[in-house]
Write a protein that binds this DNA or RNA. Structure first.
Lengths: 198, 198
DNA sequence: AACTAATCCGACGCATTGGTCGGTTTATTT
DNA sequence: AAATAAACCGACCAATGCGTCGGATTAGTT
């Protein structure tokens, strides 16, 4: 792994753990036993560094963990359930969860750094579009009630996911994950196609 | 209003806008045209200052906006809907929303300041207990299906609320609020008592 | 008026921040 | 082996962070 890569990986870890503004460049360099010179040889600034982390690490991980898993052609709601289940499971084990990471950074940069916010919002937008598309596909395939508002469901799913991750920090993450998944199944019952229920 | 109060109110505003670590004591003092001496006469430290803000401002506001509105004895789900509706409406108008504020600070202090986290988690806990109680009351009163898991519903409601607030920053808050409220009504359909539906 | 206590001022100390830069080491080419 | 470029070091800078402290102002008491 190149020095540049190591810096990004370690940088993301520390930014995730302590926040962007609360992590100094020196912190990252100390962790890697590198010097200021090495850092500013590879990156223009701390901000440039973070933007590259977004593009090289965060975007890709969001794709692999939240986008691609629901692009299949099976039963849409099952895809989403499994996707959330997997993502939350990594969260339970204290690993980095990129949906949460996203909302964390959005909170931190909101109103403070428009340039970075633009990147983060763009990722959120892609997530939203993917969900909307999946739900429309579900409606088309007859799995989801054709009266439901796809945009609304997407926003609702995203918000609940982001929220549960905040609630999973510190207080019984495993139990909360279980409860959350149960309730989201309840919700899905309300929006899936009523087939032969009367 | 006493100097101490003004400091807390302005402090909370700036902490809300820029985050705790990203707001210096000097920022607050500049806003109020006061000096370091005045600050450290009234407060021991920046952290002590924040703890007092939690106790004097945040706790009370959370009570009045998220706790008390759902302690009534009318139809539980209606109370919750109205409570969320009102809270999100203030959020749309860029006013301070104390549910969001809570999750914001939780994200910021998580893993960084256990002392403050304790206070914040305590408030969350009270919110959760209030919701659980309300839902159990709804089950008892026959408004909510008696098979539902009150804890689960509470966690789900909290998470979706916290999440939608994150999604409401920057991107069409009003539209997202509307969509969110619609979907939460859908969800409520899934958990309310089935009365004469067959 | 005289005294005391509460309130507030602002210069200062010390640590840390992001960032610069001249110079050294290491790798690659010729 | 010599020359060049890539990679890295670490002392340094200006700005800013929190917190201290001696003294000035103001309000309240007697």
């Amino acid at each position: 792994m190149t020095t540049m890569n190591r810096m990004q990986v370690t940088g993301l870890e520390l930014f995730y753990k302590n926040g962007y503004y609360n992590t100094s460049v020196d912190d990252i360099l100390k962790e890697l036993s590198l010097s200021k010179g090495a850092f500013y040889y590879h990156f223009e600034s701390k901000e440039d560094f973070f933007v590259q982390i977004i593009q090289n690490l965060i975007v890709r991980k969001v794709y692999s963990s939240l986008i691609e898993p629901i692009e299949g052609h099976e039963h849409t709601l099952d895809l989403i359930i499994n996707c959330f289940e997997d993502a939350l499971e990594t969260a339970v084990h204290n690993e980095m969860d990129y949906g949460f990471l996203l909302s964390n950074f959005i909170n931190e940069f909101n109103g403070r750094n428009p340039a970075i916010m633009k990147h983060l919002n763009e990722i959120l937008r892609i997530w939203e579009v993917t969900l909307v598309t999946a739900i429309q596909r579900g409606k088309f395939n007859g799995h989801i009630d054709r009266h439901v508002d796809a945009e609304g469901v997407a926003v609702y799913l995203m918000s609940s996911y982001i929220g549960i991750r905040t609630l999973m920090v510190e207080t019984s993450p495993s139990a909360r994950k279980y409860r959350f998944m149960s309730q989201i199944r309840q919700y899905f019952k309300a929006i899936e196609a009523k087939q032969a229920s009367f």
